[in-house]
Nucleic acid binder design. Sequence first.
DNA 1: ATGCCTGAAGGGTTCAGA
Length: 289
Amino acid sequence: MRIATWNVNSAKQRLPRLLSWLEERDPDVVCLQETKLADAAFEQLLGGELSRAGYQVAAHGEGRWNGVAILSRVGLTNVVKGLQEAPGFPHQEARAIACSCGGVRVHCVYVPNGRTPDSEHYRYKLNWLAALRDSLAAETFPAETLAGTRSPGDGGQLILCGDINIAPSDIDVFDPAAFLGQTHVTEPERAALADLLALGLHDVVREHWPHQRIFTYWDYRAGMFHRDLGMRIDLVLASGPTSQRVRAAWVDRAARKGSGPSDHAPVIVDLDTAPDGDIGPTVPPPSAP
DNA sequence: ATGCCTGAAGGGTTCAGA
């Protein structure tokens, strides 16, 4: 099963590139962020094309900013929009959606940016990350699971994808000195990410490429992509059982090239067949004649 | 320069992004 995450920076503007990319990379599940579309507009603008491409869609958006969605052609059930007890700025924003796809519980998130460390938005970011941790702990990582005595609904298969807006370590930014005192690299943000990982999640791209220079975002300005001056802030975090199935994990830099790209590149992860062989959607048994 | 591009809303400019 191939799962990908991509901050598209407007699904409307990116639609032609998204469709050709789906055809080229052939993912089974896609997590999208910054769709910038309300749900009705998402369905109207993308629904037909995505359906023709074989994807079911769950979208959680708003008109102007934010917005997340999950596309799947291996089943899409038990959709949950938003987070339990999520803080707002001041109102709750469309930054999280979850569903079950092909035997994996998939969480798609767009973490608040934080703007500057002394801002109210930064405190909002940290509070939102705490709510994400608590929501995951409550919904999919019950205590029995952490103790290893019981599996959650999807057999312990869980993946958290999205624009996390935190560079996990200094090797995830092009120049650590240039980021001193800025968001995305501060100790409290990295501690919040560590709290997420402490649930038992694995940063699968970094685990597969421990020392590589890997970025997922490059500013549009000043030729940053051309000079490969970026950051790795789009992550795929997998539970232990899911991380053991990872056979490939990479950033699709080609999707950042050419005309009219998003400023983020997709992250693509390939999962091998689950130990019990259950990799597809549940298919109802044939009805008796 | 200290927002250099890009997108959205809505109005001839502003805000947001990281």
